[in-house]
Write a protein that binds this DNA or RNA. Structure first.
Length: 510
DNA sequence: CTTCAAATAT
DNA sequence: TATATTTGAA
């Protein structure tokens, strides 16, 4: 019910009534297609997206939901929102243009306003040019999908006085948390905390998927190592009125998420590999899973084999026969919408598609790994901070299906030569007996693309430091012996028992 | 200017 | 509660 609002079926009534309150009529499921057809999105202008960079496909790229949201949330009185402001990119600014509009459109939270003083601030009338350093309030007319969810309460919640009680409440909080930290202890009084010189906290930047995509694009372009806020900002251009701080903040989170992601993936990959070796080494014997089939490595946070990406897409397709899944991206850039009524993560656009406009695709694009883990990785990466997240151009197109051979999932017995994603492909150093040291145990992580320090650290750290992590279900990993014998078959000398014992002991105790 | 982490908002 | 974003300091 609730998700209907965020999903494809905007009620036409929204338009006719000019009602900015979300209308959840709960159309019968079958109506979605009709509604989609009913509305001609192509006539909508793309707000605040510049077509200047030919690499963007405005017509396909913008989620209709957002456009609809613009309409839906827009008070009837405001008519300027959809002004093709984006059509005026040259003005290096235009940021201010959106101000009032956004404030109105932003119904849920992102905007605290209503204070007359604030409104004054938000409209830098005289400011022809906005310097980045001015840290001007940032707004995007992105009324994100989430806003559609807000029903009756949106009016009330939209109004948040500047001197919210939050400041007061944070008093105790901060004092408590500040204890032990030297940083904040001497900082401003709670009453003033969180407010700029003018006494108001800056409006949050809404990192919409599109915005995030641009961000990621810039980061990729620069390379993970060289991606610093200022450079990113340069690449992204001034169109979004972001400040360096905004970028820095987002970058911080980006790195953080990425780190976690890499660790997780590495973890999964390592277990995939172990499973493969396990299976190759003769498979289960006594402690084998009762249900026939190979031992499926339980990976934390991953959907069960066969249920990932395409399952969702397939379901969506089944639901809308003949039509692609109506909405093909998450409500939030991170793929984890916080709204309770958020629809299940859409999939199509999240699948790895190298943007057409990005000239030579990365090397890995040409040699896709064969291992299903690759798709796991791609999927999860794309869902969050992955490089290819939010590729444009195929918002609602069916996901590109990998070659049939690649679709074999974990259920399929691993092929002898099957290796995980090259990013994590283990390199078994030939001469050195495998687990010699408890540090690396002969297993290296080969990284491709833009291996960041964090990535490597995270990957290595998680794989090697927490080998016990993914061991739910009471399943045992392959015994060292079986692994070793398998390695031996592959031409890698067995390690002396002493070394093996040492290694295993070290692994167990570390 | 960048990065980190607390504070704050949602 | 968890997550996202801002803010301020190092």
């Amino acid at each position: 019910m609730l998700e209907v609002a965020t999903l494809p079926s905007p009620n036409p009534a929204v338009f006719s009534l000019g009602d900015h309150h979300h209308v959840d009529v709960g159309f019968p499921e079958g109506e979605d297609d009709f509604l989609l057809d009913y509305i001609d999105f192509s006539t909508c202008d793309v707000p605040f997206f510049h077509v200047d960079d030919g690499d963007i496909l405005p017509d396909l790229e913008v989620d209709p939901t957002e456009l609809l949201a613009e309409f839906a949330d827009e008070p009837a009185t405001t008519t300027t929102v959809l002004r093709p402001a984006a059509a005026e990119p040259a003005s290096t600014d235009g940021c201010g243009d959106h101000h009032g509009v956004v404030d109105e459109a932003k119904t849920t939270a992102s905007v605290e306003m209503e204070s007359p003083a604030k409104m004054d601030m938000e409209l830098p009338e005289g400011k022809g040019e906005t310097k980045e350093s001015e840290e001007e309030d940032v707004k995007h007319s992105n009324t994100d999908n989430k806003n559609n969810n807000v029903a009756a309460d949106e009016v009330g919640s939209a109004v948040t006085t500047d001197d919210s009680s939050a400041a007061v409440g944070s008093d105790a909080k901060s004092s408590a948390s500040a204890e032990g930290h030297s940083k904040r202890t001497s900082s401003k009084p709670a009453s003033a905390s969180g407010k700029n010189s003018h006494g108001r906290r800056k409006v949050k930047v809404d990192w919409t998927p599109e915005l995030h995509r641009r961000f990621v694009q810039a980061v990729e372009q620069l390379g993970l190592d060289k991606a610093v806020p200022s450079r990113i900002l340069e690449l992204m251009g001034n169109e979004y009125c972001l400040t360096r701080h905004n970028i820095a903040s987002h970058l911080q989170k980006y790195r953080s998420h990425r780190k976690h992601l890499m660790a997780r993936e590495a973890e999964a990959a390592s277990w995939t590999q172990k499973r493969q070796m396990y299976a190759a080494a003769g498979g289960p014997r006594k402690d084998a899973p009762a249900a026939g089939g190979p031992w499926v490595v339980p990976t934390i946070g991953f959907p069960p084999p066969g249920t990932i990406p395409h399952a969702h897409a397939a379901a969506a397709m089944a639901h809308h026969p003949g039509h692609p899944p109506p909405f093909c991206r998450p409500l939030h850039v991170w793929g984890h919408p916080t709204g309770v009524d958020a629809p299940p993560p859409p999939v199509a656009s999240m699948l790895p598609v190298w943007p057409r406009h990005l000239a030579p695709p990365p090397a890995w694009a040409h040699q896709p790994p064969v291992d299903p883990a690759y798709w796991h990785q791609q999927y999860n990466a794309a869902r969050k901070w992955g490089p290819q997240a939010m590729t444009q151009g195929t918002p609602c197109a069916p996901p590109p299906m990998p070659p049939a051979a690649m679709l074999q999932r974990f259920a399929a017995p691993p092929m002898a030569g099957m290796m995980p994603h090259p990013m994590y492909r283990p390199i078994l150093s030939p001469p050195a007996p495998a687990p010699q040291s408890n540090k690396v145990s002969g297993l290296q992580l080969q990284l491709d693309a833009h291996p960041s320090k964090e990535s490597i650290d995270a990957a290595i750290g998680d794989v090697l430091v927490k080998p016990w992590l993914p061991l739910p279900l009471g399943l045992k990993p392959p015994s060292l012996d079986s692994v070793m014998s398998e390695l031996h078959k592959q031409g890698i000398p067995k390690i002396p028992p002493a070394a093996a014992a040492k290694a295993s002991g070290a692994a167990a105790s570390s």
